[in-house]
Design a binder for these strands. Structure first.
Lengths: 230, 230, 230, 230
DNA sequence: CATGAATGAGCCTTCATTCAT
DNA sequence: CATGAATGAAGGCTCATTCAT
């Protein structure tokens, strides 16, 4: 699925030959954790699908929980490798272009299909019931992207914005991107004719950019007026 | 907590004295389902907190799942009673005002604290792992609100918009509203200094309206240009 | 086997009708814990022998360990009820008679056969690997007997003896009593022709008394000489 | 720790370089078996402490049980080498002196601290739960000492004593010696202020000799009176 | 009507041991 | 020769549910 070099993440890290079983378990676990969630997933199912013994999880990862942590971290890492945050837009481009690129990259991760969907589901479950693994994921994986978004928004809106406004702006962009993913169960029930269909990532990204760029500028103007008015 | 008349949902409604026990179980279950999630919540814990027998859940509701359904429906109903969708804006007001009212009402439901937070948590879990109860909730509770939002958006943006654009617009508004709730675990870890703090509902609503009204108009303009260009 | 009234010892104490199963488990557990030891005994075996479900232990006692504690305490209590420490010697009797009575009662407990042997085995295992239950057993069950022995020894040897000498005297009596029980595995292998035979309790008691009464008086004399000599 | 030549007990003795590993395992096993007991000790822990592979126990000793047997035999042998039974008293000395020497040697073994304590703990566990290794230990190690004690007692008490009386006499001496070791868990709980303290070996030995020598003579007198009376 | 008791399926984990390299 | 990987059998425990009273 993706490279494993140097990704032993705790435990005693069996070095070489066990590569097979260990990786098979990791792959099976990714599927099952994504589909069933941490609580409902059983190590028995995982090992069965991986053609491994029940005790193999314990041997290679020490624990169901440690296995889950490794699955989550690796899956996130693999996704980042595939979809750089920039969205292919050069660093010197205008803030508007960079924001559009960020949005497009994010939408493609989530709505582009492919094995990244496993990650999306796992993260959605983390939102409902955070696991100990989330701390690491946020600090190592999410924070860099968030800082990049903040940088873009600063460039777009100017430096004078209060922190709260910046947080709101960040939430505005991310909320629009994530909605159709996190609320899919509701959306599917509201539009049963589109059940199983995901929004087209690029069209969605365009729409979000079209809303956000003028919308956020309007937000900035509102804050400026508020400050003057004081 | 709220009315029970005629809400027995199928199972045989124990008539008189057990009213107490039944309601106590319902209240306890609301708390525990919201806090632990359906899977991790145990009927023992619920019954213990309700000062009821272990078998009481099965006796009164037939099933852990049926109990959950009833909890979810009732909690949702209670929330709707408290927070009408209109947000207090009269029907004859301008589309802009009505949208702002809708957003404000929604934000207050979610970020206003109080017992509605139970519902918010349960719905968040439903997104990660939909239960059979979700079908009913969406059809009976969510759909009317969605239709109201669609009506407002139609009034705001004009009737010519393609369905897809309307869906994106709807998602834009709702995504911005929901982000800080559904992604709270990440947000709390990104801004640990604000841990436990919710965004102020009215300030957030103002910001979202400030972004959405001009932003969505820009989105409409974009679609119009696209249609002309064809 | 013995009364249970008011002996619920923690946990939620199922009150009345479950008397059957609960007691069956207790009896089965006594046998198996005595025969196999706490570690090797399995709740599955216990429940099977008690014709009860595997979960019954958890339901009635909460835990394998709590079950063990209760078994140990009850068995000890039952033994004390059967064999009062005095050995039938009236309180006003001479110290020599009272010591002989104490020794005889103790020997009968241990070497008299009958269901008390379960306790003896369990206590022997506690010596090799004390369980959390031992604290209670010692404080509530053993200490009163020890104090009675100390009182007898004080009466026999006079009050002037240093504490250390008193402890040695106590150990002398008890060690002689317990030897053939605690070292049975070795004794049986040294005298295979007597395998399975226990020493006759009364003969052993007479011998111990015959050694101890003059022996301890000699010990006192030695301590007196030592103190004078200083 | 001590010699190994010719002590391989059946299993194929790995010849040269593995000597280190084998001995390291033996040492580690001694500690862990003494501390945890046979049942709770795990080969993983033993191998880890010995810096050896998990499979090393099976490779070098064939079995967890065979490893234990070897540990027990070697530890016992090492103890005997350090503490000859005579206690330093010449063979020609009086029976009283020889008995006192025997008692003193035994007490020093048990209460003298040092690595012999490992053996003491293992033997105590053997009493509670004899292992197959005990047969050999008794025949090869314990019996010679017992015979020496019997010889001393015969010399002290005269040859006319019935076997039963001799056994009681033997038990009297050994029981007094062993009590504070085998019942340490109870003694520690009865005298918590002395927790962790062992009786001084020489003082204890003096006290036991002071009790036993006159006491056993009194026992002989009693038996003589009984025989005359018949 | 409501309860305490009982059930059995199933979960994660641990352990001694064996296998293939 | 020695090792890391893999095995399968249990073991304790939890849980939703059902059954007699």
């Amino acid at each position: 699925m993706f490279e494993m070099k140097g990704c032993t993440h705790g435990h005693q890290s069996p070095p070489t030959t066990s590569y097979d079983t260990r990786q098979r378990i990791l792959d099976a676990a990714t599927e099952i954790f994504a589909k069933e969630g941490y609580g409902k997933a059983t190590v028995r199912d995982i090992c069965q699908r991986a053609n491994a013994n029940v005790a193999a999880v314990n041997y290679h990862f020490g624990d169901k929980e440690k296995l889950y942590s490794e699955v989550l971290m690796q899956t996130y890492q693999a996704m980042l490798n595939r979809h750089p945050t920039s969205g292919g837009v050069p660093e010197g481009a205008s803030p508007e272009e960079r924001l559009a690129g960020f949005i497009r990259a994010f939408c493609r991760r989530i709505y582009g299909g492919g094995p990244e969907s496993y990650l999306s589901w796992m993260m959605a479950r983390e939102m409902a019931e955070p696991s100990p693994a989330l701390d690491d994921v946020v600090q190592k994986m999410v924070r860099p992207q968030q800082q990049q978004l903040i940088a873009i928004l600063n460039a777009l809106l100017g430096p004078g914005l209060p922190e709260q406004a910046l947080r709101f702006a960040m939430g505005s962009v991310l909320g629009q991107i994530l909605f159709f993913h996190y609320c899919r169960p509701v959306v599917e029930r509201l539009f049963p004719e589109r059940k199983g269909l995901l929004p087209d990532p690029d069209q969605l990204a365009d729409a979000i950019a079209a809303v956000s760029i003028p919308g956020l500028k309007a937000l900035r103007a509102k804050y400026e007026r508020a400050q003057e008015g004081r």
